[in-house]
């Protein structure tokens, strides 16, 4: 099936079947490697992308469901994004594998006013796993970016 997807502000034509998940289409056809597949069942958050500004798991999103939505990957955030800068300042990562998902999830929380307390930040990031265990610094980075 031919689909037109709006990715990071531009329209891209892809060839995807319903059994193709959005994350694979973005990586293999659009060339965006920010979203990564790890668990493949919606649990860990490394495949996070924003659909109309809301985080979703790209690993379990049948590609045609993204039609007509604005898809944002980590590559689509502006160079000087405040959340990215705050992660940088706080050294809130080790290997960086989970970071695109963490940043996009935090971006949504901050934009919607759901990062007002540490408790709220912990809860909002609860579905994003960091194998390097950088949680404390990640929470600090989001807290700082939210201010």
């Amino acid at each position: 099936m031919n689909l037109t997807l709006n990715v990071n502000g531009r329209a891209v034509d892809v060839d995807a079947e319903p059994h193709d998940m959005l994350v694979d289409v973005l990586r293999d056809q659009v060339g965006l490697t920010g979203p990564r597949v790890t668990c493949g069942v919606g649990l860990c958050g490394t495949c996070t992308v924003l659909l109309d500004g809301e985080p979703v798991s790209g690993c379990i999103l049948m590609a045609p469901l993204a039609q007509g939505k604005e898809i944002t990957t980590i590559e689509g955030l502006p160079e000087d994004d405040e959340v990215v800068a705050s992660f940088d300042r706080n050294h809130a990562f080790q290997c960086g594998y989970c970071i695109p998902g963490m940043v996009l999830t935090a971006r949504d929380m901050i934009d919607k006013g759901h990062a007002c307390s540490r408790e709220e930040i912990r809860e909002g990031l609860g579905g994003n796993l960091c194998r390097c265990g950088c949680y404390l610094k990640i929470i600090e980075a989001v807290e700082e970016a939210a201010q």
């Binding site: 319903p18 059994h19 998940m21 493949g40 069942v41 919606g42 798991s57 690993c59 379990i60 999103l61 049948m62 045609p64 469901l65 039609q67 007509g68």
Partner: peptide, 24 residues
Amino acid sequence: GGTFLGILVRQGLVEADEWISLQR
């Protein structure tokens, strides 16, 4: 929303030639 189906489809547990989406 496709969250339940997405997992099943990804794992090859559900296959179909035609799908009816409620997205519109």
